[in-house]
Simulated assay, not measured.
Amino acid sequence: MAVEETVSTLPSTVVGTTPGVLRLINSRAILDELFREDASRTVTELSRAVGLSRPTVEAALADLVDEGWVAEAEAIATPNKAGRRAKRFAADASAGAVLGVDLGLHGIVGLRADLRGATTARVEEHYADLTSADQAWASVQDVVQRLTDGVDPDRVLAATFGVPAVVDRSGAIDYTVAVPQWVESRVPGRIQDLFPGAATFFDNDAKLAATAEAMWGRFRGVDDALYLVMGRQIGASYLVDGSLARGARGAAGEMGGLASTGWPTAPARLEARIAADTDLESVFAAAGRGDAEAVAVVRAFAEDVVPGVVQLVTTLDPEVVVVGGEVLPAAEVFAAALQDLVSPRLRHPVAVTPSTVGRDAVARGALAPVAHARPDVPHGTRLTSRSRAGL
């Protein structure tokens, strides 16, 4: 799936290159090779792989070891060979950290990962309402502080935030119907200020969730698929011919404002069905356990969103529809209801299924590039290239 783009501050062709820049380029090539496989390499092996002389590789490795990005690894025994074993070197995935944050209207999920994409910390918080810019800003600061507790700020290399907004191809938030106060009060800019030494990006939450589903979930091996975010926040994203569809201005799938879909009024109708002595999370959880009243609420919600789902399915002709978002605790019930309601309107029924990535889909989608591609040399040996999840 074509969801990765690499952006570098170094031009692809360097004119009048200085020795210092050449050394940085060499360091990046070597670190790239070390991150390519989770295995140690000798100087000779690295020299052959990157096409650099042994002295050049040794000098670059010395820089990388001093900076903490590479460590000397245990030598491998070579039977029937006498003499001193060659030194081996490996990239240290724990030397830096990247963050993926799902910043929603009613909750935040934050993940911290090492440089190979392995999750090292997770924070989740639920809120009654984060439409207020002040509340959103305070909550983001709290989650980020807990997520990076004990981490050297200089070692946080990148942070990607999934937001309920249209994000254009340059990574700028174009507009948002859900949280206009965030943009008016410069919440995105203040978030970027939290990471002065790191690359900070924003992307649409549904598109990041679809990215995660394509890497780890139900979309693997699927060319055409539809992802639905369902709950008090409704959205959609989709794959076409194996690629995440963005549209000319990043607005592909943004149907939530169209009255014909039933989506603009569905969240309010959903909340109106919730008894005063409970909350939506409890109702979804109860529906997941089979409680009859809660199941009826979920099925009614499915009925409300059917028109928009039918429009998307008939337009895209997906192989599968995956459901995520707040409805996940009751996703089996919701998906079954949606299947029953949508199928009679289609010539070829489509499978509707819960997300297999789950609640962390948006945050994991934000970390997706790191999970299958190495970062470039950061900080002291500083090359500020970054991989971005489609921004």
Rank of each mutant, 00 (worst) to 15 (best):
T211F: 07
F334K: 05
K87F: 07
A366Q: 03
T315K: 05
V322R: 13
E67Q: 02
Q135L: 11
T56E: 14
V166K: 05
F89Y: 15
L111T: 02
E4T: 14
A361Y: 01
G257W: 01
A259P: 08
L391S: 15
L46Y: 13
A363S: 00
V177A: 04
V7H: 15
V123W: 10
P79M: 04
V297I: 10
S387A: 12
A300I: 00
L258K: 07
A165C: 06
L105T: 15
P318Q: 13
L34I: 06
S94W: 02
Y227Q: 08
Q141N: 11
G189L: 10
T56Y: 02
E58G: 01
T56D: 08
E124Y: 13
D223Q: 15
Q311G: 07
D149H: 12
A212I: 13
T131Q: 07
W69V: 00
A371E: 00
R122N: 07
F284R: 11
A165L: 06
A62G: 03
R232V: 12
V352R: 01
V306Y: 01
G358D: 01
L391P: 13
A113W: 08
T18Q: 10
E4D: 09
W216H: 14
R88C: 01
G150L: 05
A351M: 00
A285F: 13
L10W: 14
H126I: 11
A82W: 00
I108P: 04
V15S: 10
R382S: 13
R269N: 15
V179W: 01
F89R: 06
L103Q: 08
E45S: 11
V327N: 11
V163F: 08
S47M: 11
L22A: 09
E5L: 15
V177P: 00
L239T: 05
E74C: 03
V283F: 11
A60L: 04
T6F: 15
G257Y: 01
F195Q: 12
V70S: 03
T42S: 14
T381D: 06
G197V: 08
I25E: 06
A86M: 04
G365H: 04
H348V: 11
A95F: 05
D174V: 14
R23K: 09
D340Q: 02
S132L: 07
L99D: 02
A62E: 04
V156S: 14
P180S: 05
P307W: 01
R28Y: 06
W69Q: 06
S185I: 00
A91T: 06
V295C: 04
A206I: 09
H126P: 07
A236G: 09
